[in-house]
């Protein structure tokens, strides 16, 4: 990967391609834009510094960056700064979209589509996607958390993603 050779141009392309998705993942956890952007900046600095440690045989670059983002966001939640913040929000964003309808968080997103997509998802799919994608559970842990067999979780997860792709017009 060119970025592993310290190519700034390659870094810019990667930022352009993934920054919004990673910001969404982080924002879903920390729920504050300024904090999410700070964390996103840290995440990309880590990506730049640790590009050498990315192993293409291990998985997708997006998956690697996704892990860094989730961990950074969760680290923030565990931090003193977050615990001292009286305005911190307890409710998960992604999983509450169907219930909240229009809320203060919705206004801040740039996509009306997300509401449409997510509202079409079955509640179980929202839970599964939240655990596996946004929270970074392994499928074994997620199966345990949801109290369903691992095989069932695998197939259900796939069905949920297919529903999402259908909503997005990709299937």
């Amino acid at each position: 990967m060119r970025m592993q050779e310290g190519n700034e141009m390659a870094f810019s392309r990667i930022y352009e391609r993934y920054h919004k998705a990673l910001l969404g993942v982080i924002y879903n956890v920390v729920k504050k834009q300024d904090i999410a952007e700070e964390i996103l900046q840290d995440v990309f600095m880590k990506i730049w510094k640790n590009a050498d440690s990315y192993d293409a045989d291990q998985g997708r670059f997006f998956t690697w960056a996704l892990n860094i983002s989730r961990n950074a966001a969760i680290d923030y939640l565990r931090s003193k700064a977050h615990k001292n913040d009286s305005l911190n929000l307890s409710r998960d964003y992604f999983v509450n979209i169907p219930e909240d309808g229009t809320n203060e968080l919705e206004i801040q997103t740039d996509s009306l589509g997300i509401m449409t997509w997510v509202k079409k998802l079955q509640p179980m799919c929202i839970k599964v996607i939240d655990l596996i994608f946004f929270k970074g559970f392994t499928f074994k842990d997620a199966a345990h958390d949801l109290a369903i067999p691992e095989g069932t979780l695998k197939s259900r997860h796939r069905k949920c993603v297919q529903e999402l792709r259908t909503s997005m017009g990709e299937l």
Binding site: G24, D110, V161, E170
Partner: peptide, 29 residues
């Protein structure tokens, strides 16, 4: 296709953001 769907979903959750983060990153780099 799966990756694209997930990046679209996550990006849909992202708040509107200007180029400040990118500018700060490039400056730092």
């Amino acid at each position: 296709a799966i990756e694209h769907a997930y990046t679209q979903l996550a990006a849909g959750l992202a708040p509107e953001s200007d180029d400040a983060v990118y500018d700060r990153l490039i400056s730092s780099l």
